[in-house]
Write a protein that binds this DNA or RNA. Structure first.
Lengths: 212, 212
DNA sequence: GTAGAATAAAGGGTTTTTCCTATTCGTAAA
DNA sequence: TTTACGAATAGGAAAAACCCTTTATTCTAC
């Protein structure tokens, strides 16, 4: 008897390939493959489709890995989610773990490390690389991410700021006075320690507030 | 007897997984796997290591897919390069094809399409999806990419512009007068049809001139 | 009820960016 | 030898961005 694994990844070639790898492991076999979180949620409605492990990509269209993991964790907490991503952004890793992922692997791991991770996941209930451990320690040592301190209206402004619009134009679109927009900008600059709009754009793109 | 395939990709898990898929195909088998272009070039020095096909990732550290393909095409034109990438940027696709790639696959293809591509590659000598065909047609219909019209010094300026530096500071770092920098900026704005620096930053990131 | 956040907005000043036109200087082509 | 061109540069001016301080208003907590 082997543990069942579901692969969720929008890059079909990759998911199939990873599925192939997993099928090659002694104690694991692939139950099925999904293209996004939505598809997974649908599938799980049938009890026969509930696996031991979900290998979950983080960046997916329709329903991304974070939402999917979160849903999964609420409804089927016994299913262990192992995140698999090229994403090394601290905040993404944290969000994934908070959503209930039991482990986080970078996509550049070796085949043997994947097998090892799966084994440890079933034995200990979790698996974490050094990178992830470091992120966790950092996050515990106080400092809430400055990103989390941004409010919804501020995020909306930032997305506008990542265009060629002037602040005046942004103010019009957000139905606010240009002076209010300046206020938003100034408080964001201070919170994120930025000097000017260029810095803000780079920050927004780095932290996926705005995706070009 | 089966055709030999080399996989070049910096994401080790992916390259091993794709290798596994290829080994599963009837007429193909994996010769070896490389982490980047440099490693491939080294390997090829031994005639025993020259494969029929190279499955080449485009985004790699050290020596990327475009450089690697270009080198390969000069020294071993009989080797067929099939580019494999998540990149859908027109310019990247074009550069890869100009470098001598015989095909370009998005990483979200299905297993069967990969096999089909490999077979067609050996039979016809090339394989192109509809997406790639469209890009090719577009590129032929005149309009050289505005990106290509940017000169080296301009690109250097753009990378500086993607920071929090003022133009004055950029001028200092490039040992030019602030007025010259203004000249650069204005001609770039016109060439790329931009209104302001924010637009330039977004453009630079979209077209991989600057990677955040 | 009232102090204190949090949100929206204004006044007014400085710096940077944006835009337009024009000059110099070297190099390459006619 | 002109002519033409591109790269570097300047002056001037308007627009936008940046910065600091202050003021209503609302909502919330004590």
């Amino acid at each position: 008897m082997s543990y069942s694994v579901v692969v969720v990844d929008d890059h079909i070639l990759l998911s199939q390939a990873i599925g192939g790898l997993v099928d090659g492991f002694d104690k694991f076999s692939v139950l099925y493959i999904c293209k996004n979180g939505q598809e997974l949620v649908e599938k799980l409605k049938n009890p026969k489709n509930i696996p031991d492990i979900v290998l979950m990509d983080v960046n997916m269209p329709i329903m991304n890995g974070i939402e999917a993991t979160s849903t999964l964790y609420k409804e089927y907490p016994q299913v262990k989610v192992l995140a698999l991503s090229i994403e090394e952004d601290e905040n993404v890793i944290l969000k994934m773990l908070r959503a209930g992922a039991k482990g986080y692997l970078m996509k550049d791991v070796k085949k043997t490390e994947l097998e090892n991770a799966l084994l440890e996941l079933m034995e200990k209930g979790y698996y974490h690389t050094n990178t992830v451990a470091k992120v966790l320690v950092d996050s515990l040592s106080g400092k809430e991410s400055s990103l989390d301190s941004l409010k919804e209206r501020e995020l909306e402004f930032i997305r506008h700021a990542c265009t060629e619009k002037t602040y005046k134009e942004i103010a019009d679109e957000m139905f606010l006075s240009p002076k209010t927009i300046e206020g938003y900008r100034n408080s964001i600059f201070e919170k994120l320690n930025l000097r000017n709009r260029t810095g803000l754009v780079i920050y927004a793109i780095k932290h996926k507030i705005f995706i070009p």
